[in-house]
Amino acid sequence: MRQPVVKRVRQVPPARRAKAVRDATPRSRLTTAVRSARLWLRDLGGRTVVLLTGAVVVVAAVAVTGYFLSRTETARHLPDTRARSYKDVDACLLTGKDGITAGTTAAQVWEGMQDASLTTHARVSYVPVTGEQSAANAGPYLNGLLQRSCDLVLAAGGPQVTAAERAAPLHRTVDFVLVDDGGSGPKPTGSARNADSGKGSGNITFAHPGDGLRAEVAGTVERRIAARG
């Protein structure tokens, strides 16, 4: 007599069954969405699909074009601060050891030179005389400016003015603007001789220290550069 066959049913743990349901749900939703989209496109017809595709392409192109145009406009309204152009004219200042420290005569001269640079686009620079504050020691520094082809040489301070006044007759193509700050150094004879008029002869101009020095230097530099053409 044959024994009855007993079928064993494999029991799936509840946790695994729940996971299988969760995994199947997104796939089912995705499958349903794809099937619905295909049916919708088929119902629309080929011509409508082409029109919709073209519309999408046009919208994307407009968006991309607008993006690049906006970047171009932004760049156009932000000028490069380094784009300022200068004339081939150099105005160089020779100062004492303190340079252009605020409150000094040289600081006023430097401010006037900067004002003139904004108007004329001339390049401006300065060099302080270090070490002994004498005309003899200022001479090599002045020669350095002349070798750099400075078109205008401004000197602030007794020793610097003395050195520049001695060199001026030897460099007729260079304009000199001299400002004696009334320090303890030797007084240049030219400055004393022209103290009333504020002007020297030839390629030398004397400026007066004081409250109006900045404007006087700016005006003198502008006139000298204009005379050069």
Rank of each mutant, 00 (worst) to 15 (best):
C150D: 00
C150E: 00
C150G: 03
C150R: 00
C150Q: 00
D151N: 15
D151C: 13
D151K: 10
D151L: 05
L152M: 05
V153C: 01
V153A: 04
V153S: 01
V153H: 01
V153R: 00
V153L: 03
V153K: 03
L154T: 01
L154E: 00
L154A: 00
L154M: 07
L154W: 03
A155Y: 06
A155N: 04
A155P: 08
A155T: 08
A155D: 06
A156T: 09
G157S: 14
G157H: 11
G157W: 09
G157Q: 08
G157V: 06
G158F: 11
G158L: 07
G158I: 10
P159E: 05
P159V: 03
P159Y: 09
P159G: 06
Q160N: 13
Q160M: 12
Q160H: 10
Q160P: 08
Q160E: 15
Q160C: 13
Q160F: 05
Q160I: 06
V161Y: 03
V161A: 06
V161K: 02
T162F: 09
T162V: 15
T162I: 12
T162M: 12
T162Q: 14
T162K: 12
A163Y: 08
A164G: 08
A164W: 04
E165W: 06
E165Q: 09
R166G: 11
R166D: 13
A167Q: 09
A167R: 06
A167L: 06
A167T: 07
A168V: 06
A168Q: 07
A168K: 07
A168H: 05
P169H: 00
P169D: 02
P169I: 05
P169E: 01
P169F: 07
L170G: 11
L170Y: 14
L170H: 15
H171S: 12
H171I: 10
H171C: 05
H171T: 09
R172Y: 04
R172L: 13
T173K: 14
T173I: 11
T173F: 10
T173L: 13
T173H: 15
T173P: 10
T173G: 13
V174K: 06
V174R: 09
V174T: 15
D175P: 05
D175W: 10
D175G: 14
D175K: 14
D175Q: 15
F176T: 01
F176N: 02
F176H: 00
F176E: 01
F176D: 01
V177I: 13
V177F: 03
V177S: 00
V177T: 09
V177N: 02
V177P: 00
L178I: 02
L178D: 04
L178S: 03
V179L: 06
D180R: 01
D180Q: 08
D180C: 03
D180P: 02
D181E: 07
D181Y: 10
D181T: 05
D181H: 04
D181A: 11
D181P: 02
G183A: 13
G183E: 09
G183D: 15
G183H: 09
G183Q: 10
S184H: 10
G185T: 07
G185I: 07
G185K: 05
G185M: 04
G185F: 08
G185H: 07
P186V: 08
K187A: 15
K187V: 15
K187G: 08
